[in-house]
């Protein structure tokens, strides 16, 4: 089975620095890691390879330092790693990003049977890229999966969606985005890290290799633009109350009532 896992390198901590010109994150100097849900997707891919045989390719679009995450993916057991990188890609929204990734995937030989990715990233939080890649490649999608099993030529997956637990059969090739609960993530073995960093092979594909024009990528290829970044306004009232437990409880209940969460009482 040919599995492709899309991963993204994301900042490791909430110490965010913003490039106010480009309206994007400054990535240099901040510790980075594989987006946690992508790591789950990778683990799932490795499991499936274990059961069905085949190959796991990891793909990432990002600045050059995303190489580190791809090497970690190799250390985890991926067979092949491809970094899709080009200065022209910077500032791409999800529309442009999915276009670049879809193009890269369409260049893979053989074409994958299964595309896996995390349901969303901890920085952008949108969850758009997976479905948008699926749309461009004309593949069926199932998002938020927490259980996968192989049944012949198709996949049977389970996911919780708006309070419904769906069991879905999807024909391959398809795109599946995964949820945290899908499988536990194993720590990386030290020797594998050593090998992945000293010997691992990372292919690099840029705009020209992918046959993309400048208008298709970056800000020009994007439909949305971040106009400005704000920190959530400190609209918290911050009222502090001291007193007996009785007093505190009464205040709390008063707030519940004010929010309409309790029926008004006469007693």
């Amino acid at each position: 089975m040919n599995i492709v896992v899309c991963i993204k390198q994301v900042p490791d901590q909430p110490t965010i620095r913003i490039d106010s010109e480009r309206m994007t994150l400054i990535r240099e100097g901040v510790e980075s890691t594989i987006n946690p849900l992508d790591r789950v997707a990778l683990e799932a891919g490795l499991h499936l390879r274990g059961r069905a045989g085949g190959q796991v390719t990891v793909l990432s679009m990002g600045p050059p330092q995303s190489e580190e995450s791809l090497r970690e993916a190799l250390a985890a057991g991926a067979d092949r790693a491809i970094l899709v990188t080009d200065p022209a890609f910077a500032g791409s929204d999800t529309l442009a990003t999915s276009h670049v990734l879809a193009r890269a995937i369409s260049r893979l030989r053989p074409f994958p049977d299964l595309l896996l990715c995390g349901m969303k990233t901890i920085d952008s939080d949108t969850g758009h890229v997976g479905p948008q890649i699926a749309e461009e490649l004309g593949l069926p999608q199932v998002c938020g999966v927490n259980e996968i099993s192989l049944e012949g030529d198709s996949l049977v997956v389970e996911r919780l969606s708006d309070g419904f637990l769906d069991t879905v059969e999807v024909t391959l090739p398809a795109l599946i985005s995964v949820n945290r609960d899908l499988c536990p993530v194993r720590s990386l073995a030290l020797g594998s890290l050593e090998t992945a960093f000293s010997q691992g092979n990372i292919a690099r594909w840029g705009r020209e290799e992918l046959g993309l024009s400048e208008e298709e990528v970056g800000p020009k290829g994007s439909a949305t633009r971040v106009q400005r970044l704000l920190t959530p306004a400190s609209t918290r009232k911050g009222e502090l109350v001291n007193g007996s437990p009785r007093l505190l409880v009464d205040r709390l209940i008063g707030t519940l009532e004010a929010l309409g969460l309790l029926d008004e009482e006469d007693g």
Partner: peptide, 14 residues
Amino acid sequence: TPAFGGNLLAEVVS
């Protein structure tokens, strides 16, 4: 829209 789990807000236009 919220980013970084809501620790940052982005004002987006199309």
